[in-house]
Computed example of a mutant assay.
Amino acid sequence: MIQGLKRLHLIHYRWILAITLVIFVTVGVVLFGIDSKSAEQAVTKATQYKLLVMARASARSTERMLAMFKLELTVLERKEEIKNQNIVGTRNLLTNVLTTVNLPIVHQLGLVSKDGTLLVIANKEGKITGQGDSLVDRKYFQWAKTAKEGEFFLSEPIIGRAGSNKDKWVVVLITPIIDKSGNFNGGLFASIRLEDLTTGYIDVLKVTPTTVGYVINENGIVLSGQPEDLVGSNIKEYAQKEKWKRYETYINVIDQIAKKEEGVGDYYFAGVDKKVERWITGYAPAQVDGDTIMIIIAVPFEWTLGLIADFYKNQIIWLIFLIVIGSLIAFFWISGLYLARYDGYNHGLKDGANFKKGKD
């Protein structure tokens, strides 16, 4: 009977030990999860804010860049060589500007006649392929025909057909040439490679090698970004076609552009390797003659997790420490109770035996 009682109490204490361990482990895991989630959210918000600041800086730089280009084109448009469409004089003038004036990311300047003929191409490489071709089908030329002096137009992404920008994605900034009678007499334009728009004004702000930058216009058309086949596409339609996760969220970005608002986001899209993953983003608008383009800076979510890797290690160490301490406390507590109970049984049996002898 005594052995049975001992076994019963031993089983009872084992259950207490097991339950105590489960409680300590559960509490530790819950606290670890709460702290980890809080740390993840804090790092994500801090990263988003940093990217937003970068996007703002890039947007302001882009605005200043375009303002500088417009100023230079305004000055050139008033030159007699260009007003009179002196081909040799215009080529020398434009070439001199490209080699002596600091016009970052502008590789090519050009002069188009009032009937849409590309009269002059000037670039640093000296390539004049396409000179003499017609640009009458280009939207930017159609705009220039009805524009007023001093107005500018920034085209959507197009594939270059002439000079050093042939077969490259470009956007064209054009201003009309108005003669002394107030009539349209052609257009003067600067051609900007989209790859240079990213490397010149976004990549310089990279916080990691995996940072990516995008430029999107009000219609959701990607002016600059990766992968290459994304350029010139509507971001929402492209995301839907490529089956990006939660592609509908890109509507929010386009809505923000229309409202000319900045913000932060958490999106799934593909990078250079076309692998769809989660990205943390910050975006800010840049104003271009009444139109808005959105500068977007993004880093992979995995990178933000790397920032709290040490935190996770420390939390795991504390979790293990908590479990060990809890186990030791439970072990010594139950051992003490067991020994006390065992000692009580022995004393009780002795007292009972002595009492029985006394009665006998």
Rank of each mutant, 00 (worst) to 15 (best):
S224K: 02
Y338C: 13
I254T: 00
Q3L: 10
G336P: 10
S224N: 03
R161Y: 02
V25E: 06
D115H: 06
V212P: 00
G126D: 08
F301Y: 06
R60P: 06
I257C: 01
N165T: 09
A46S: 15
E77L: 05
I82N: 01
A286E: 03
D255Y: 04
S61Y: 07
V172Y: 07
E195G: 03
I192V: 15
T62Y: 12
K50L: 09
L10T: 12
V120I: 07
V101I: 10
T281L: 04
P227G: 04
S36Q: 11
Q48A: 09
I174V: 12
W15K: 13
V22N: 08
Q226P: 00
V112I: 15
H107W: 11
N86T: 07
G89Q: 03
I128K: 05
F69S: 03
E125C: 09
T129L: 08
A190D: 08
K260H: 11
N252Y: 09
L111G: 00
L5I: 09
G352A: 14
G186F: 13
L21C: 06
Q108L: 12
A144T: 14
I11K: 07
K124E: 05
L71H: 15
Y238Q: 11
R193V: 06
D229E: 12
M68F: 05
L10D: 07
L307F: 05
V276W: 04
I334R: 00
K243W: 11
R193K: 13
I19Y: 11
D255G: 05
V172E: 12
D343P: 00
L135F: 15
V101P: 00
K45E: 13
D289V: 06
M68R: 10
L339R: 15
I2D: 00
I82H: 02
V212Q: 08
E242T: 06
